[in-house]
């Protein structure tokens, strides 16, 4: 059960108030007719499924009804940032792991299987 910071309500809210809407930053081609079938198929159906950093579109459905973006780690489920539509993520790569600590990634390996 996540707790998500809504960038419009400016506070942490419970997951039950949100709906996930898939991968973020999928832009509809400006001129669909100029797309090949393959390009259009990519836009419609193909999504990333990364192990690690993932940018997602969510909507605060039972709140302010605003869509926004979430940067989430798909292994630890940590939410690293949330940001408004039209903004770009500031977290785009794994944080560097210092030598003394174990990365969350290793610790949780395979656990969700």
């Amino acid at each position: 059960m996540f707790q998500i910071y809504c960038p419009y309500c400016e506070e942490l809210r419970e997951e039950e108030e949100f709906h996930p809407k898939g991968q973020a930053h999928i832009v509809r081609p400006a001129n669909p007719e100029a797309c090949s079938d393959e390009e259009w198929g990519d836009y419609l159906f193909f999504r990333d499924n990364p192990r690690g950093i993932h940018h997602e579109l969510w909507v605060h459905a039972v709140g302010c009804r605003k869509f926004f973006n979430v940067t989430r780690h798909t292994v630890s489920y940590a939410i690293l940032e949330t940001y408004k539509i039209g903004e770009q993520p500031s977290v785009t790569a794994e944080p560097a792991v210092s030598e003394s600590t174990t990365s969350t990634d290793d610790v949780r390996q395979g656990v969700r299987a």
Binding site: C9, R13, E14, E16, E17, V62, G63, C64
Partner: peptide, 9 residues
């Protein structure tokens, strides 16, 4: 706030 109430809002 607008929020979840039981299974309604």
């Amino acid at each position: 706030v607008n929020t979840v109430f039981a299974k309604a809002t």
